[in-house]
């Protein structure tokens, strides 16, 4: 199964949830089952079994939650996306310009999560 390599960075205090490590290099599957959590709508069982889709940022969020997050999930994710107050940059660009959770990840992408929750 092919994988894609990603560089993940945490800033603004978010690294505290990830073993206080700011930078991570991870490998995730390039194609994931359609039934995997996604911003797209649900599909029928037959389609889920037969189809795969490219890994997107929403899949990555769940992957990070299940594999890297050490504590307090609620400070990272909420309602299937990042918690309000967390800025996401995809290759140095605001994820709102890239389609947010629907952005299809590519090999060597750099995804940055910055918490703005530390206030003034």
């Amino acid at each position: 199964m092919s994988t894609i390599s990603l560089k993940i960075e945490f800033g603004g205090g978010l690294e505290l949830l990830f073993a206080n490590q700011r930078s991570h290099r991870i490998d995730i599957p390039a194609l994931v089952p359609v039934s995997a959590p996604s911003a797209a709508g649900p599909l029928s069982t037959d389609e889920q079994e037969s189809q795969k889709k490219p890994a997107d940022v929403t899949y990555l969020l769940y992957w990070l939650r299940d594999n890297l997050l050490k504590e307090r999930e609620e400070l990272f994710m909420e309602h299937g996306t990042v918690r309000p107050g967390v800025l996401v940059l995809i290759n140095d660009t605001d994820w709102e310009l890239e389609g947010e959770g629907d952005y299809q990840l590519k090999n060597n992408d750099e995804i940055v999560f910055i918490s703005t929750l530390h206030g003034g």
């Binding site: 800033g11 603004g12 505290l16 800025l87 940055v112 703005t116």
Partner: peptide
């Protein structure tokens, strides 16, 4: 959000 972007792009190590 702009503060977070400024801090990240200016390499400011926010104490927290």
């Amino acid at each position: 959000k702009e503060c977070a972007a400024w801090a990240w792009w200016s390499h400011i190590p926010v104490v927290g």
